[in-house]
Design a protein around this nucleic acid. Structure first.
Lengths: 196, 196
DNA sequence: CCCATCTTGAACTGGCCGGTTCAAGATGTG
DNA sequence: CACATCTTGAACCGGCCAGTTCAAGATGGG
């Protein structure tokens, strides 16, 4: 297995991302990454970069992949704010329900570890987290919701979304998480007409 | 400094708790704990136990201290569910606003790290997290709210409360966190009459 | 005054950490 | 076949890790 061909970098990045996602930055060693990707230590350094660089790439990858899904869900129901929020939550619930993926959320988890992360990684995590709220706000405004309402709703929905990561990490059942979403959407539905 | 007297164990436990709270279990070494408490390595082992035991004690300490505050806040406004929920959030906001304490929440942070914690610690973290919801539910039921409404409200408020930990960890301003709470309480207020 | 008691600092162990280097071998090309 | 290219495995480095042990010293009680 040498000469001119290579392993699949994308597959390796996915494996590394899942490892970081499951165990966090601090509790993932280069050896863990080697085992997770099936790559040699040397290959990781030569092809994926050092631990910090690799984590940053995984964070970007995670943000890009699920960011697209959130965008797609929000835009499909852009004209109906409640449906958009529901679709937004469904992306999260779907990801959590996937048995092939770790619980929680790589971004929320990284944010919780900010005091012990490198400045570059911390900044990226903060940025990724903030982007969720901006996505929501943009979608709600696109649904012709008033600016300040869109901001308030986005803040609230983003908050509930983050709590799903915490609760799933604690082993909450899909039914419990669905309850959280239902109550949140219900509360927003009740608040919506009162604000119009 | 020897003979028959001792250092203050409570003070040392507080210092250890804050260290774990700031940096997390994985990123806290016994040396860090030694520095944080001002105690010698030997003294930590002889007086506070090994790292796992000490972390468990800190988790208990955290849960007991803030659990009492949540209970007190909830019971002061037991007859008025919305006021109780508001008082509940105020405890969290107050803790976050305290410059002498780390951001976030030790329990939420520990829950996020469950996959890499020892089973005993993981179970304790899960238990402590679940207790928040039970507190809220009990208080709401004491305020004569219907059982299923109390459960739904408790789930929702606990979720928002967890998200405050994530957001404060990301460096959110007190004003932003207050917005999250305001929107949540507002949404619950809108939903409340509709459910009566 | 003297001794039992407790703390303290330091050293040490065995192991894993992140990171780097290098020779050996597999591979496809000419 | 011969060669250049890339991967691979393994070893090594300095450092930090958790955990343990022990002699020296400070203290208070008798």
């Amino acid at each position: 297995m040498a000469g001119k061909k290579q392993f699949d970098v994308d597959t390796a990045l996915d494996a590394a991302m899942i490892q970081f996602w499951r165990a966090g930055y601090a509790d993932t060693s280069v050896d863990d990454l080697s085992r997770a990707t099936g790559l040699n230590r040397s290959s990781i350094y030569s092809s994926l970069g050092d631990k910090d660089t690799l984590f940053l790439r995984c964070l970007d990858r995670y943000a890009a992949r699920y960011g697209e899904k959130y965008d797609a869900a929000l835009s499909c129901a852009a004209s109906e704010p409640l449906a958009a929020v529901r679709a937004f939550f469904d992306v999260t619930l779907g990801r959590i329900a996937d048995p092939g993926l770790p619980d929680g959320c790589l971004i929320a988890q990284s944010v919780m570890a900010i005091p012990v992360l490198s400045p570059a990684v911390a900044a990226q995590a903060r940025k990724a987290l903030g982007f969720q709220r901006l996505r929501l706000r943009a979608a709600l405004k696109a649904g012709r919701m008033a600016d300040q309402d869109a901001e308030a709703f986005a803040v609230h929905a983003a908050a509930v979304n983050q709590s799903l990561a915490v609760m799933s990490r604690a082993g909450a059942s899909p039914a419990q998480l669905l309850t959280v979403v239902d109550v949140a959407v219900d509360a927003l539905a009740q608040a919506l007409p009162a604000r119009d």
